[in-house]
Amino acid sequence: MNALQATARGLPGPSASRTRKLARAVFGGLAVLSLLMGVAGGLWRLGVAVPDPRVFPWTGPVLLAHAALMICGFLGTVIGLERAVALRHPAAFAAPLASGAGAWCLAFGHPAAGAWLGVAAAACFLAVNAVLVRRQWAAHTLLLLVSAGAWLVGNLLFALGHGGHAVLPWWFAFLVLTIAAERLEMARLMRRRPAASAALHALLSLLLLGAAWSGAAPRTGGLVYGAALALLAAWLLAFDIARRTVFSQGLARYMAVCLLGGYGWLGIAGVAWALTALGWPMRDVALHALGLGFVVSMMMGHAPVVLPAVARIKLAFGPAFYLPLAALHLSLLVRFMPGTAGETLRAAGAALNAASLAFFAATMAGAALAWRLRHGAAGARELT
């Protein structure tokens, strides 16, 4: 069948298929680079020399850009891709392209260019979500638009040279609001009192207030922000559909376990965030209970759904999916364990955090290979 016949039958021609594969490789490469550099920077900060920083000439920029690489470079690119696929317009891919390119600049010693590319990415992402709101006016799409605005504010503050106390609350608000919007969409499947919706909107407004307040008054803003995170965790545990689907089977149960575990870490992060604002040495717990315990648990839970939709990679689900999830939670327990050996355990826990992410990636690769072996060449052709 030639290219013209393929197009006439509604199938992609060879050139279109090659273009799609190239685009997936480019975006995948940008996201993976951001993740690898971000993880390396986090390990180096705690003295874990894996990989050896002496053989990498840009160690300094990676150390400084750890949070930006993880949140804006990796997660921003992945979320931007997901939304671009939903919009189905080529211009929507400008957002993940800019965020990925910005991460590349940050990692290789061009911080100003990387920061302003992040601003461009967030601005494009805001426009993409505005179009999606026009297509579907709903509470969850409006909340996604607000989350994009939070990312833009955080990236602007970062580009203008503001510190982490001002920037990080906005970056994490972007992630938390994005997840809350997805859960709000699923919550339509459950009956709940009108007061529950009003409470959620109040909590998310409180979160944004805390983010805005943190720049001018870190102590007060941190207390408000931490309280909002802890209360949001309680709301999700009380009203999210995962409370019911955890008693089901298969993939639905796995996703529910990921979600409920993540909500627990969200509550811990909220308490630690407030205690940090009061002067307690809980910053590592606040940031990584939120970024790893909550956000990565959500990522692990949604990957079996997102990968087929965005990357056209189908997965064969099995009990092995629970192993990297358990490894992540155990690594966080080691990292946050108090005592006289705290710094040693913290470094060991960070190394185990990285190992659990690698374990998860290997599990996804194995699941993709298992699906292809199970369905053969015909199934593989469906994904091109």
Rank of each mutant, 00 (worst) to 15 (best):
E382V: 10
A217Q: 14
G318N: 13
G42S: 05
W116Q: 05
G210F: 02
H89W: 13
A130K: 04
W171N: 12
A195S: 14
R193D: 15
I79T: 07
A173G: 10
R9E: 01
A181M: 11
S356V: 03
A107W: 07
A274M: 05
E343L: 08
L35H: 00
A199F: 03
L63R: 15
A8L: 11
L117K: 01
G10P: 01
A98H: 09
L145E: 01
P308Q: 12
W58A: 14
T384L: 15
A127G: 01
F158I: 00
A130C: 09
P51D: 09
A65D: 08
L97K: 02
R134F: 01
I241P: 04
H302W: 10
H302K: 10
A311R: 09
R88N: 15
W170K: 08
A238W: 12
R83D: 02
N155V: 00
A138L: 06
H165K: 14
W371V: 02
F294P: 05
L142D: 00
N353F: 08
W371I: 04
A309S: 14
A378R: 11
L4Y: 01
V176C: 13
G41C: 02
E185I: 10
G29S: 04
M282E: 05
A365P: 00
G163C: 11
D284E: 14
